[in-house]
Design a binder for these strands. Structure first.
Lengths: 226, 226
DNA sequence: TTTTTTTGGTATATTATTGGTTTATCGTGG
DNA sequence: CCACGATAAACCAATAATATACCAAAAAAA
């Protein structure tokens, strides 16, 4: 139900969501009130009202003449379980989910749906020497696989797991493990997965995903012990 | 009586359902009376009558010049994605997660940890004629299995999935499917799972869990088609 | 350093929106 | 017929949002 009156409450919800989703990092400064007023097409007073509520909630801290800042202790507040999850816990969770996601994708994916994965495969193959770009595309790839199942719950879970990748520790780990050699291996495995889905072989798809995850786990453990 | 002509009582139930299903968050403002009148194709007075009843029930709070707001204590604050998940989506997600959770439980569970499952098995076996009690214990049982893995991320995911059981639709479904016969079947399967974990046979544990979930899915589909 | 720019803080008059109220009218069912 | 509920329209009062201007603190630039 959308209301015509875009009030301070709605603006506050929008900003709150931005913060909780981590699109605004801790300690980071919010855009200036006048800027936000323009971007949300709303009066500055409304922005001030919204920020005031967030300040009351302790989510942000406003400094006169400087700006409004995300309070550190609240930036990661939502889903502390996921944020504190250790890399190996994440891999285990993926081991549980993604092979079966591949099976469900075989059952539910329509032919046209695989085109998106093709574009992603190309993007990842072009990023052999750009670990960040590869990681970004890889995240989308695994999300798209979940979407192929048509199961919104699974998509949501995968998104939750993916959200940890924005974490600092995780980013550094990715840069270490995503060497050109590993990226090449991953790309071959990705293609095996897509091919298996395309040929409607659910067990082959699940097996390919297990191999893929096993490679990722090994790379992770090598990086951790190094 | 003309069914096309909707009275205040009907409008009130519609809005009440919107609130209880969490489609309107806490503290959120309802659409303006004039707007709702248009969307429900009804006179403003009828909307006012409906909102008045909700206010009497304490479900909403009306502020002159501002709007009608959902009172915090009545708003559903669960995750909308999970809340709107269909039973079969949930089962599929469990199919993805729980067999592998059993494997991980075999790997990580210590001997003493299985005592909790024993107590739960006894509780469920004593509840053959009490579907609600059985469902409650069953929820805990699957959570404990996740805890055996030592993976907090998996525990969190299972808890999220379990939280949907408080939903109205789901409760009715459980009462339909949890007949004494089905409960007996479930209890046998639960014991197979625990026995497999105890004897450190990860594939047997995973297979037993798959059988269990398959039984649940069949019961669900029978109930849905009935 | 000094100067300039940017930023939040405050005040105010105006406009728009919203709930509150009244009144007249129409249809349906008893 | 009457009673009752819904409709429709008009107006009132409270509140929210807008638009504008100016101040003071902080930051940036000179």
């Amino acid at each position: 139900m959308l209301t015509s009156r875009r009030g301070a409450a709605e603006i506050a919800s929008i900003i709150r969501r931005e913060i909780e989703q981590g699109r605004l990092a801790a300690q980071e400064r919010l855009p200036a009130e006048r800027t936000m007023a323009e971007t949300y097409a709303v009066a500055r007073g409304t922005i001030r009202e919204a920020i005031g509520r967030l300040a009351e909630e302790g989510l942000v801290e406003v400094r006169r003449g400087s700006g409004a800042y995300v309070r550190a202790e609240n930036a990661q507040q939502l889903n502390p379980v996921i944020q504190q999850a250790r890399p190996l816990e994440l891999i285990d969770a993926r081991f549980a989910l993604e092979p079966h996601i591949c099976r469900l994708a075989v059952l539910h994916a329509r032919d046209g749906d695989l085109e998106r994965t093709e574009a992603l495969l190309a993007r990842m193959e072009a990023a052999a020497h750009d670990p960040s770009e590869f990681a970004a595309a890889d995240t989308v790839f695994h999300t798209v696989l979940a979407e192929l199942t048509g199961n919104n719950l699974l998509v949501w879970i995968i998104n939750q797991i993916n959200s940890v990748r924005s974490q600092e520790q995780w980013s550094r780990m990715l840069l270490m493990t995503n060497t050109p050699d590993m990226i090449r291996t991953y790309n071959q495995q990705h293609r095996q997965i897509v091919d298996a889905i395309r040929s409607r072989d659910s067990e082959a798809a699940a097996t390919a995903m297990k191999s893929h995850l096993e490679s990722a786990r090994l790379a992770l453990m090598r990086a951790a012990s190094a």
